[in-house]
Structure formats: structure tokens, C-alpha cells
């Protein structure tokens, strides 16, 4: 076997082996969440490289070594699920670096991080003042998780006591002009509905690059022809405007009429509609 065939055969063999190992190892192996996965990832890679390029002969030694490392990672994962102790030893614990807004120098020293390292990690989290941090933890993998002081955290709808319309996941129903039938079914729609919606927007199916359905049944599309202006209807906003108009009409009628009975009826309904609008308003914002 000459060198070229050797490289060809070993490359193909190791591509297959590595593929199998990563499939077995799962997503965790790729994310390199723990020390063990990090080390075994590097080692498996370098064994493969060494055996492919080192022309010393037995390929299956390399495959065996990779299989052993793969098995160890796998076993470590399986045992880790069962036992917290094993996890703590193998993967290490997170270290608290900042608590109650104070830097814990002892822990920093234990992890052999300098104050510059800490500042750099904080900056990567968009924090430029140590004083802004309430709590920070150094994860086993070496990155820093930061909890900002409450007044510096991003404002949420909950902070403002704001009612927002609940939203579920969207579904991509058309890709490259092809209808994805299982996605369409998952969204609770069918081909007939899609055809009608596309006709409403004035485009044909083969001009659609992406189409998505949101949880309110609204279809948003992107077309191949970027010069084309696709209408973006906002049916819920329009509905709110119509509701407000009707409410104003009812109030107007009550002012205009001279019959006391009718005045009372109009007033009653205007108030009723007003409270209904208040209730439904969060669902009509888009």
C-alpha cells in the first residue's frame, strides 16, 4: 500500500469513526460543557490527525484509542447523570467570584484569575463597571455568568405591569418555494388556507423564498424578487382601530339623540364596548 492510498483509506476510516463518536457523544460533546469533554475532544482530534499523517502502519490502533476515549466520555456522561458527587469531581463546581456586589479575592486567587482577567470577562458580558454587578459565577468551563443589580437589568413588561399578547412559536411553512406539509399541519393550517393567503398577498408560490405563520395565523413572507413590495397587513391593529371608531360613534349618537331612552341605551353600550376594548387591547397589539 503506497502512501497516497494509506492517507485516503485512513482519512475515510477516521471521518466515519469521528462521525460515529460524535453521534454517540451527543450535543454535549460538541458544546464542550465540561472539562472532561473538552479534554477528550482535543485528544480524539489529535489521535485522528496523528494516525492519518503518521505513516507508521496500523490504523486500527488509532481507531481503538478513539473508541476508548469515546467510551470514557460516554461512561462519564452516564454516571454523571446518576451521581452528583461524580459530577462535582469530574466537571468541577462553579466558583462564586462576586457576591453582594463585592469581589471575593480568595476565590479569584484559587482559580488563578487576575483582576484583569475578571475585568475582561465582565467586559465580554457588556459590563464595564464592577460596581454594577450584584453576583457573578465562574462556570466550570471558564466563562463568567453575571447577574446585574436589579435597577440595571433590562426593563421587562412585567416591571411595567404591562399586559402583552401571549405569543407561541412560529412555523416556517414555505422554504425555497416548496411547501413544508408537516410544518403546515403543526401550525393547524392546510394547503387551501396557504393558497388563499398567498393570493391575498398577490404572490405565487414559486416566488416565495420563506413564509412563516405566527400563532395568530398571520402569514409573513419573503419573496425572491427584492424589488417587489409585499403588503404587510396588520389585521389586529386595524380591528382595534375599528373597535375604537365604533365606540366613538356610540358616544356621538348618545349626544345627538333627543330621546332619553335611546340616550341611555347608547351610553350603556358605549361603556360596555369601552371595557371590552380595554380587555382585548393586549391581544390586538402586533
Amino acid at each position: 500500500m503506497n502512501d497516497y492510498t494509506h492517507i485516503l483509506v485512513s482519512s475515510v476510516l477516521f471521518v466515519v469513526t469521528l462521525f460515529a463518536i460524535t453521534k454517540i457523544g451527543g450535543k454535549k460533546q460538541l458544546a464542550e460543557l465540561s472539562f472532561f469533554e473538552y479534554v477528550s475532544g482535543i485528544t480524539i482530534g489529535s489521535i485522528a490527525g496523528e494516525v492519518i499523517m503518521g505513516l507508521d502502519g496500523n490504523l486500527f490502533h488509532g481507531v481503538l484509542a478513539i473508541a476508548i476515549f469515546g467510551t470514557f466520555t460516554y461512561l462519564h456522561d452516564v454516571i454523571g447523570i446518576k451521581s452528583k458527587k461524580v459530577r462535582d469531581i469530574m466537571e468541577g463546581k462553579a466558583t462564586v467570584i462576586i457576591k453582594d456586589g463585592k469581589v471575593l479575592e480568595e476565590n479569584l486567587k484559587k482559580e488563578k484569575y487576575t483582576i484583569d482577567d475578571l475585568n475582561s470577562l465582565l467586559r465580554q458580558k457588556n459590563v464595564f463597571r464592577t460596581a454594577d454587578v450584584e453576583f457573578a459565577v465562574l462556570e466550570p468551563k471558564g466563562d463568567l455568568s453575571v447577574l446585574l443589580k436589579k435597577e440595571l437589568q433590562p426593563l421587562t413588561a412585567k416591571d411595567l405591569n404591562l399586559a402583552v399578547s401571549p405569543e407561541k412559536e412560529s412555523y416556517t411553512v414555505v422554504m425555497d418555494g416548496n411547501v413544508l406539509n408537516d410544518q403546515l399541519t403543526a401550525a393547524g393550517k392546510n394547503r387551501g388556507w396557504l393558497d388563499v393567503e398567498l393570493a391575498n398577498l398577490g404572490v405565487t408560490l414559486d416566488n416565495v423564498f420563506i413564509a412563516e405563520v405566527d400563532s395568530y395565523g398571520k402569514l409573513t413572507i419573503d419573496v425572491y424578487d427584492d424589488q417587489l413590495q409585499v403588503p404587510s397587513p396588520q389585521p389586529r391593529k386595524l380591528l382595534l382601530a375599528m373597535l375604537n371608531k365604533c365606540q366613538a360613534d356610540l358616544e356621538l349618537f348618545s349626544l345627538e339623540t333627543e330621546s332619553p331612552d335611546a340616550k341611555k341605551m347608547y351610553n350603556k353600550n358605549a361603556t360596555k364596548l369601552q371595557s371590552a376594548i380595554q380587555k382585548i387591547k393586549p391581544f390586538l397589539s402586533e
Binding site: P166, G217, K279
Partner: peptide, 23 residues
């Protein structure tokens, strides 16, 4: 809207408003 949305709360709110409008 009540028929098309997959969010139960929204569906309920739309339906209730529909009844008020009916009255």
C-alpha cells in the same frame, strides 16, 4: 381570529369580545 390563533387565552378573549359585540 378566534378560530385562527393557537393561543388559548387569545382565542377566549376574542370570543368573549365577539359576544359583547353581538349584544
Amino acid at each position: 381570529l378566534a378560530l385562527n390563533t393557537s393561543v388559548p387565552e387569545a382565542s377566549k378573549a376574542f370570543h368573549e369580545t365577539m359576544l359583547v359585540i353581538g349584544e
